[in-house]
Simulated assay, not measured.
Amino acid sequence: MLEPTAPSQADAPAVALGPTALVLGAPSALGVWVPELGFAVLPLVFIAGALAVTLGAAGIHYARRGIGRAWIALTGTVLGAVGFFGVVSLFLALGA
């Protein structure tokens, strides 16, 4: 007979925050520093960077409580910040 299983902390949706931030942050950082991509992907880089920073910060918060991995969330947050602030600094430089 099958035994009932109770959900553990590893089954929590918060576990996915860090990897999602990493998946959004990596292309965001890459989109800023590869000039061949041009201005076509800058809005996507901006949005992906902002989402990576937000989800990564939430992932770090939950990782401190033992749910998820902190290094994945931190890496996604840093890469997202590079992409987000890269686009912001580019727009500020072009606007000045």
Rank of each mutant, 00 (worst) to 15 (best):
A40H: 01
G66A: 08
P13M: 06
T75I: 15
V41K: 01
L74R: 14
P43R: 07
W71Y: 14
F85E: 10
G59V: 05
I67E: 09
G66Y: 09
A48F: 06
T75C: 14
S89R: 15
L94K: 13
A14E: 15
A93K: 13
L79G: 09
T20M: 12
L22G: 06
G95P: 01
G66D: 11
A6Y: 04
L92F: 14
G95M: 13
W33L: 08
A6C: 04
F39L: 02
A52D: 03
A12Y: 04
A21H: 03
L94S: 12
I72S: 02
G18I: 02
I72P: 03
L44I: 04
W71Q: 13
L92W: 13
V34P: 00
P27F: 02
A40Q: 04
L94W: 12
E3I: 05
A14R: 08
I60P: 01
Q9L: 13
G95C: 07
V82A: 12
L22I: 07
A73F: 06
A48M: 10
G56D: 03
F84I: 12
G95T: 13
S8T: 15
V23T: 08
A63F: 04
T20P: 00
A52G: 07
L37F: 10
V41D: 02
I67Q: 03
A70R: 15
L17M: 14
L51H: 00
D11Q: 11
L79Q: 04
Y62I: 00
T5H: 05
F39P: 00
P19M: 06
A10Q: 12
L74C: 10
A96K: 14
L2M: 05
